Computed example of a mutant assay.
Amino acid sequence: MSVDVIATEYLIRADILAPGLVEGLYLQGSVALGDYRPGVSDIDFVAVTEEPADPGLVRRIHRDMPRRPYFDGLYVTWDDLRADPATRPPGPAVHENRVQPESRFERNLVTWHVLAQAGVAMRGPQRPEVFTDWPALAASTRENLESYWRPWSRRLRSQPVSLGTWAVSWGVLGVSRLRHTLVTERVTSKSEAGRYALRSYPGWERIIEEALRIRCGGPARYRNPFRRRADLLAYLDYALDPDGPPDAALVR
């Protein structure tokens, strides 16, 4: 089913089971950033209510939603959107069709910035009032490179086996995306970041093209999975080194 069909089905279910609850519905993530890939991407949403949503109602609404693609997201109030998400309480969220009553899933500056940049309004104001703070987002992006991606790379290195396609796409495009976000001062998509890396990081074209191929389609760039593993690990070392990529001065 298409993104529009699934979002419309959700709104119909919400209006039948909880009339008046959902005052705004916005699509963020890959849909908003122009990088939605059928069969690969999930549909990320932010549902806006006047008062905090009751988790029981949220469960009823999502109980019979399509299993794939996942319709993942969170329930917030208009006041939540106007404030720093770090200062607001947790609330209902849906992740891989599981409702989490009190969750911080996607309640962060990345989501708020994507909504402000390019959120797709299915219901509510086209451009709702959303809190943004680029210096804070840049700081958390740098912290994410150190606290998540560097340990993730070390864990991969400790596994003496070939790696599947997921690890290649997730690693190459994930790290490239954060670097590109820091350079452009906006949240960018994985595919856009991959194309940026192709232009900016000479000598690494093969592994970057392979990551883009896994996400977007096309012929494989490797026949030997262990060669691909070695190139992935080497690229991660390069991209995570502040003195490595040519944009290093921009991301400090």
Rank of each mutant, 00 (worst) to 15 (best):
P125M: 05
E50D: 13
P66I: 05
P66T: 01
H113W: 09
A121I: 00
R59C: 13
E102R: 13
E96Y: 14
Y148P: 00
I43V: 14
M122R: 12
M65D: 01
D84M: 13
N97W: 06
P128M: 02
L81Q: 02
W134L: 09
L145I: 11
E96H: 15
T111M: 01
Q117W: 09
S103K: 02
T49D: 02
L57A: 03
S140I: 14
A116G: 02
N97K: 10
A118E: 11
D54E: 04
M65I: 01
R59I: 01
R107S: 02
H62N: 14
E129V: 15
A138W: 12
S140R: 15
E106N: 10
I43N: 06
V40I: 11
Y148I: 07
A47V: 08
L109D: 06
G91Q: 07
H113T: 15
R60C: 02
L57N: 01
W112G: 01
A83K: 11
D79Q: 15
D44L: 05
R67L: 15
R150K: 15
S41C: 08
Y148D: 04
A138R: 15
R98S: 10
E50G: 12
N97A: 14
T87W: 09
E51G: 05
I43D: 04
D133P: 08
V110C: 01
I43G: 06
A138F: 13
F105S: 04
H62R: 08
E50W: 09
P85Q: 11
L74Q: 13
P66L: 04
R98M: 13
